[in-house]
Design a protein around this nucleic acid. Structure first.
Lengths: 324, 324
DNA sequence: CTGAAAGCGCTAACAA
DNA sequence: TTGTTAGCGCTTTCAG
């Protein structure tokens, strides 16, 4: 019995003859070691959970897949099993047994985090800044992302600057808008209410928003869409109306997705390190689980502006008209 | 000790006083029952694995997310834990302990399936027809999907019919092309080689393909793109060249994604039941695990044509020119 | 209704 | 190098 265990766990000193004998028997009987027993005796289960709220738009574009890829990859490297929970936030999670849990985006499910915390499970929140709970988080500075977009437009001389937001129930959506507006305000550029269209990350909402913006008699010369997907839709609508990008209208997206990169008009976009955030979330969680880290960590990753071809200086015609 | 267990598993006959006492202690000590011990004694671990090859394009569009959503949902309902493995096919999977495994798409990782099978783990393959291993599968009739697209074009009177394929290393891509070509052949429509562009599900490849097709002196009047994402890119390229859809060129996609539905030109597409396939995969696996089912099941789900606005009859100009 | 005790399958310490 | 043995934390008889 013990010898079998030794063979299976590649213990160095076992007689060759026995190794072969055991391996033969294992193959013969299709013997599969019971991992529950192993974990019981070892006292750890090297399993972490990933909780994703199943809210429409959470998987907007490229983001959801990058998130899962990043967490999945980091878990593979760290030899952790990854248990996936896709939840609507109502159910209580069967989480107690996990070594730790990563919560990706908080959308109406902070109760789940609270109860995980209460029962002493190590937790890390990803892609959300959390102020009302004592929990570690790694997020993107979405406020800064909004700022970057605004500042780029301002630097190019634009004055009539509009935005199509993401889902404002998500923190990312809200903060991007906030940073964007504040930065414009800093430059003394006022944004009329009809220049802010509230989308939800879907292409459809971007289409509706773009049409509304292009129908304004004082059409904006620059549009910040809060995801690449939406930005590409804005460009599509522009082309349908014979508006050139970037000559007639400049567009900035958010995500720096491959689709934006390879589009007809290369999309200028705000890059956010989703994969890295996911990976670091796993590493942080491991530190918490192992006790190597005692206090919570709050980390904000910085987005960056990626320049491509969808932005240009304010159109001349417009410039002369609005020149004082 | 035993009483604690009874309280936690809601055993009916326990004194109320004791229930309260236990609950208080549990809260006090942040007691978390050890699931490994529970599983050990119960003899089952109610955990299933989902293996997804991390091959570029596997998560093409809408498909990857629907897959994960479907499996995730079914597992939640069946009270199974879902362990996610994203693999490049090279590593051997730590799978032995799982109750069963779902393999989604086989791309250079059939070795993993073979070894899972060999060690006696119940397996289900999703989205692939498997002929060379004794394993259950649930797949979509992609051949039929290709046929549907071809027949629709033929019914509309088209003759110059082209296609932009998906990744032909995937079975789905290959079969869609096969069905498409055979159906055209049945209608005695010949497809010159330059009408078949080998894409890879990426928007970029679709763009390249569309440009090549539109540059042909004998430009096709109908294009079947093997994913909605690619189809939308084809339409975008068409618009850039002042070609109208569907008046000048008809387009069919594959996926019936929400993006195709809400696009400027509603996309006619082939619907494939990804979510359902994923759910049924889980159910099938549960039957296999429990022993309720002894033999393998091979199930082919049927795709269907969803009509929207991106297809029209063969353009008149072309018609007169090619009329015999 | 409740406590005692056996044992789930495995590993690790200890002898041999 | 190997076999024996004592638990890991829990559930489940079985008495009480």
């Amino acid at each position: 019995m013990a010898t079998v265990s030794r063979v299976l766990s590649r213990f160095p000193s076992v007689d060759k003859k026995n190794i072969l004998k055991v391996e033969a028997a294992v193959a013969e009987l299709k013997f599969r070691p019971n991992i529950s027993a192993q974990r019981l005796v070892k006292g750890s289960n090297n399993t972490i959970g990933l909780v994703i709220p199943s809210y429409p738009g959470v998987f907007h574009s490229f983001y959801g897949i990058e998130l899962i890829r990043g967490v999945g990859h980091a878990c593979e490297v760290a030899r952790q099993d990854l248990v996936l929970h896709i939840t609507d936030g109502r159910n209580s999670l069967n989480i107690g047994y996990l070594g730790g849990v990563i919560f990706a985006d908080i959308i109406e499910n902070s109760g789940q985090i609270r109860s995980a915390l209460a029962s002493g499970v190590p937790c890390v929140v990803i892609n959300n800044v959390v102020r009302d709970m004592a929990v570690s988080y790694i997020a993107v500075n979405n406020y800064k992302g909004g700022e970057l977009a605004a500042r780029h437009f301002v630097a190019l001389g634009h004055v009539r600057i509009a935005t199509i937001t993401g889902n404002l129930k998500t923190q990312a959506g809200f903060e991007r808008l906030d940073g964007f507006m504040k930065a414009l305000d800093d430059s003394s550029i006022s944004v009329p209410e009809e220049y802010v269209f509230r989308g939800d990350y879907s292409r459809y909402s971007a289409r509706v928003g773009a049409e509304r913006l292009f129908n304004l008699k004082n059409r904006p010369t620059a549009i910040f869409a809060q995801s690449d997907d939406m930005a590409l839709e804005v460009i599509a609508v522009a082309h349908e109306r014979r508006l050139r990008v970037p000559e007639d209208v400049s567009v900035i997206g958010f995500d720096d997705s491959p689709q934006g990169m390879s589009a007809a008009v290369g999309l200028t976009s705000i890059r956010q390190p989703v994969f890295e955030m996911a990976e670091r979330g796993v590493h942080l969680l491991m530190e918490l689980i192992s006790g190597r880290r005692k206090e919570n960590l709050h980390l904000l990753l910085e987005p960056e502006l990626v320049l491509r071809d969808s932005c240009a200086a304010r159109p001349a015609m417009v410039r002369s008209r609005t020149r004082r």
